[in-house]
Design a protein around this nucleic acid. Structure first.
Lengths: 124, 124
DNA sequence: TTGACATATTCCGATATGGGGATATAATTT
DNA sequence: AAATTATATCCCCATATCGGAATATGTCAA
């Protein structure tokens, strides 16, 4: 098999940075494709294609108005990501506390060695 | 070009559902690879490979202990996702409020027409 | 009906992926 | 040193992706 398809879920759809940019533009409100194109300065087909992906996973909504298509963010679909990340909230809160504690101990008892600080992702 | 590499950023690393499963396991605390393998029941190389991706983007930290490698979640790296999603918080809050408002108006003033409700992702 | 405007779709090619399986590296025990 | 345990790496391949460019579809106006 290969990588999880972009339309598999919201996480995959949003992984593409360009798609997050599109969502940023739409954060200002409902907008026709043309406006997004001129705001971002990308070729129109690219914008349309990214919008299709966002639409397939439900992150945006479309509405026709004359020859335009007005896209709008579908907020609730973003919440799962928020909720998932929130699951790990204690990991950055706790870590902050731990770092603070270590900093205090160093300041009180030792002269810090000229090495890496604990918690670094080194170790290879 | 092709798709954004999985090691490009945290969003791409986490897009893979299996990788989120690995993080879930690590949420219970620091763990050697073998434990993750037996918990998830996947082939060991797969687990190692996913761990490498998570490590490259900084989502986990490694520490050697004898012949084992103990992996641990690196919380702060998850926060950017949380922060990004939080940017759109108003979109699901507002939408809730709007739905509520519409429901009240319908109940008070009209007999609802047998059509779609506004905001539907239909229109194709 | 012809033309202009707005958007979507198709075809192309290079690329990184993830799983499978085999094997390499590293640390420990006997 | 040899065997064992723990983990990482390598090779192979089917697949979906993204951008580019061209073109199709749809809608409105004259």
């Amino acid at each position: 098999m290969a990588r999880t398809p972009t339309t598999f879920d919201v996480f995959n759809a949003v992984a593409e940075p360009r798609r997050r940019e599109v969502l940023s533009v739409l954060a200002s409100g409902e907008s026709p494709v043309g406006d997004i194109v001129s705001t971002l300065g990308w070729p129109q087909p690219q914008v349309s294609k990214h919008l299709q992906v966002l639409h397939q996973v439900g992150l945006v909504t479309v509405r026709r108005q004359g020859r335009q298509r007005l896209y709008r963010i579908n907020g609730p679909e973003i919440k799962p990501i928020y909720d998932w990340a929130a699951t790990f909230e204690r990991f950055w809160d706790h870590q902050l506390a731990a770092i603070k504690k270590r900093a205090e101990q160093k300041a009180n008892f030792t002269i810090p060695p000229a090495g890496r600080s604990p918690g670094d992702a080194v170790n290879n």
